[in-house]
Write a protein that binds this DNA or RNA. Structure first.
Length: 481
DNA sequence: CCCCCCCC
């Protein structure tokens, strides 16, 4: 694990370090509240430098830095090869830098490096940081290499704690979509874990939605993912200090955590104590809280979701009979996928997706774009019958949802229909009798002076049995109570 | 050498 250390460094390094310590403690200009003696590299490591002095042109150095975020291990596979990696963000008094460990170094250092801890790190490959992928304030980033050494540092007084650049939730209204922000808020609501299917890969993802509020009396939805979502305990209204959340425009404004985000729960910092005080004295009783995130179309797994209803309930409540659409979720079975006209040839222009006309000369005409193109893409528009234990309902499914329910892409369906019609039919009929949680949008549709209720499936998720049983238990209690 | 950060 840790490389055996070489013999002690040559003595000429010592006066340099002593001098640095002396100058820092005597001039009284310590920038950090927790200023201690400058860290001295363990024997065998080059002398310690500030992060902001590192460049690709030096190769003998050590830094002493705090890990402010740590990704999980990710694998990749592309034309240049495949491998695995994780990355960390490092902070010292002088600045910050991202470090990535690939393959052998990934295995070697993943366990040792923990967020919030301080390490001596010596020797790595520096290269120009791609600003497109990092918000850290450094022109360079490092990759660990075969000569990299990492040693935990326990005398870390001179290394600043994680630094936040908090904005208030109110300020989020003006934040740009996809920007990365730091926030501190009280988690005053949290949903259970739910599972969604990632569109691009079909992978199941665990997520948890919660709401945070601050003294601006604004509240915003935040989504956590994966293991972090599973481990999160929102009971007792904890204060969350969040570094590096991503701003989304879903439902107005909402937040999502990403790989480089870090969350501290009830951190021992003044902002957290102040906020906790505000929440407990007045905040929790505020009646004039404004939510920046509307909950339409949110998670069906509890908070923020369209409510879970049966088809009979939705009908009885007249959902979809108003001007605006209504949203609800239901647990239902696919009873029939109508095999006719479930595919169409679509325009490939960005964002168009309209049906094209086959000109029978190798060209396809899009009326909307008013042009002819020599290719098309297959798209799905499926009429499908769903049933729960109360009723059945005809719904429409488009591309992404249809691909999940059919278990094949629109492109595959198109190819099958033309080259292997039997297989096409087999895939369509195999889609029946599977159960999902559907999120539905229902609205009155007027066509040729005739009005009828139109239901579109917004998303389809595996049924979450824990969530569903909780609902049943709640209903049983209400009936008996 | 990654560079995806997800779901509505």
């Amino acid at each position: 694990m840790i490389k055996l250390l070489a013999p002690p460094p040559s003595p000429h390094l010592l006066p340099v370090l002593v001098q640095r310590n002396t100058s820092m403690s005597s001039n009284g200009a310590a920038p950090s509240k927790a200023m201690g003696p400058a860290p001295v590299a363990p024997s065998g490591m080059p002398n310690v430098r500030p992060i902001n002095s590192l460049t690709p042109y030096q190769n003998k150095w050590t830094i002493c830095a705090r890990v402010t975020s740590k990704s999980s291990i990710r694998t990749w596979s592309n034309s240049r090869g495949e491998g695995k990696l994780f990355s960390i963000d490092l902070l010292d008094e002088s600045g910050e830098i991202r470090a990535t460990a690939f393959n052998a170094e990934c295995d070697k250092f993943f366990e040792m490096l923990e967020p919030n801890n301080v390490y001596y790190i010596s020797v790595a490959t520096l290269k120009t940081a791609n600003k497109q992928f990092s918000s850290l304030k450094n022109d360079y980033e490092m990759s660990f290499n075969g000569g990299t050494q990492v040693v935990p540092c326990h005398e870390d007084n001179s290394i600043p704690a994680m630094q936040f650049d908090f904005i208030s939730i109110e300020q989020l209204e003006k934040a740009e979509k996809n920007s990365i922000v730091d926030l501190i808020g009280v988690c005053h609501e949290y949903a259970d874990i739910s599972t969604v299917i990632q569109k691009s890969t079909g992978r199941e993802l665990k997520k948890r939605d919660l709401k945070i509020i601050d003294h601006s009396k604004r509240s915003v939805n935040l989504t956590m993912w994966g293991e972090q979502a599973e481990k999160f305990d929102g009971s007792g209204c904890p204060v969350l200090a969040i570094k590096g959340a991503r701003v989304s425009d879903f439902g107005g404004v909402s937040l999502s955590l990403i790989g480089s985000s870090t969350v501290q729960i009830n951190p021992d910092i003044s902002e957290a104590h102040q906020l906790k005080g505000w929440w407990e004295s007045t905040g929790c009783n505020s009646s004039d809280v404004i939510s920046l995130s509307n909950n339409r179309g949110g998670s069906s797994g509890g908070m923020g979701g369209g409510p879970l209803k049966t088809f009979a309930e939705a009908k009885r409540e007249g959902l979809g009979s108003r001007d605006q659409p209504d949203f609800y979720s239901c647990k239902a079975i696919v009873t029939l996928v109508k095999k006719e006209n479930l595919l169409y040839r679509a325009c490939t222009s960005e964002g168009c997706n309209k049906k094209v006309t086959d000109m029978n000369n190798g060209m396809y005409r899009c009326e909307k774009c008013n042009k002819e193109i020599d290719s098309f893409s297959w798209r799905l528009m499926i009429s499908c019958n769903l049933a729960d234990f109360t009723e059945s309902l005809w719904v429409t499914m488009f591309q992404d949802v249809g691909e999940i329910v059919l278990g094949s892409t629109a492109q595959e369906m198109g190819a099958m229909k033309e080259e292997n019609p039997d297989m096409f039919l087999a895939v369509v009929s195999a889609a029946s009798f599977k159960e999902y949680t559907f999120k539905l949008r229902v609205k009155m549709d007027t066509y040729n002076d005739e009005s009828r209720l139109k239901t579109i499936v917004q998303s389809v998720e595996p049924v979450n049995p824990v969530e569903y049983n909780k609902r049943l238990i709640k209903e049983i209690k209400e009936m008996s109570g």
